[in-house]
Nucleic acid binder design. Structure first.
Length: 183
DNA sequence: TGCACGATGAAC
DNA sequence: TTCATCGTGCAC
C-alpha cells in the first residue's frame, strides 16, 4: 500500500473523484488499522457548484474546503451523521470529493454504505476536520494490485435544491459493487 | 438572537 | 413516507 501524495489531490476534482475509486481509506485508532476500499464518491467541484458547501463562500464551516488539497473536510449532517470529504485542487478553490461508500477490508464493524454510516464504521468525526491526509493515522492509499472495474456516472444524492447543478452527473461508483449506497 | 433546513439512515 | 436531532447560514 502506497500513501497517495499531495499531488494526487491537487488536480481536477472529477479526475480525483474517479481515481479515488478502488483506493483504500485507512484510519488508525488506538493502534488498530481500520481499512475500507472506496467504492462510491461524489465530486463537489468548487464555489460555483451550488450543491457544494463552498458555494456559501468562506465561513467557519467551509474554511477547510478552501484550504490546501489533501486534507479531510468532516462535517455533521442532520444533527446525527458525519460525512468525510478529501479537499482537492488548489488552495482557495473550495472543492472536495465526498466519500459515500466503502467495501470493508480490515477491522470494520457495521455498515459502510452511505456517507454517515461510513464515518461511523471508520470512527471518523468532526475532530478529524482539517486533518492532513498525508498523516500516519488518517490517509488514503493505493493498493499494490488494482483490479479492473467499470465506473458508473450518476447524479448526486440529496442536492435537489441546487438547480441545474443537481442534475450533473458528479457521483461515481464501481459498477456492480454490492456496497454502493444507491444504484 | 432566532429560525428553517439539510451532501442521512432506518423504521413503518 | 416519516422521523430523529442539531450545527450552520441568513434573515431580522
Amino acid at each position: 500500500m502506497r500513501k497517495l501524495p499531495r499531488s494526487f489531490y491537487a488536480r481536477d476534482t472529477v479526475e480525483v473523484a474517479k481515481d479515488l475509486l478502488g483506493k483504500s481509506l485507512v484510519h488508525v485508532v488506538d493502534g488498530v488499522k481500520r481499512i475500507g476500499r472506496i467504492v462510491e464518491v461524489e465530486a463537489y467541484v468548487g464555489a460555483h457548484d451550488l450543491a457544494s458547501h463552498s458555494s456559501k463562500g468562506i465561513t467557519d464551516r467551509t474554511r477547510v474546503m478552501y484550504g490546501p488539497a489533501g486534507h479531510a473536510y468532516v462535517y455533521l449532517i442532520y444533527g446525527m451523521y458525519h460525512c468525510m470529504n478529501a479537499v482537492t485542487e488548489h488552495e482557495g478553490h473550495g472543492s472536495a470529493v465526498l466519500l459515500r461508500a466503502l467495501e470493508p477490508l480490515r477491522n470494520i464493524h457495521g455498515k459502510t454504505s452511505g456517507p454517515g454510516l461510513l464515518c461511523k464504521a471508520m470512527e471518523i468525526d468532526k475532530r478529524l476536520n482539517g486533518h492532513d491526509l498525508l498523516s500516519d493515522d488518517l490517509y488514503i492509499a493505493s493498493p499494490r494490485t488494482r483490479e479492473a472495474f467499470t465506473i458508473v456516472e450518476k447524479a448526486r444524492i440529496g442536492v435537489d435544491y441546487a438547480g441545474e447543478w443537481a442534475m450533473k452527473e458528479l457521483r461515481f461508483y464501481i459498477e456492480g459493487n454490492p456496497y454502493v449506497s444507491r444504484k
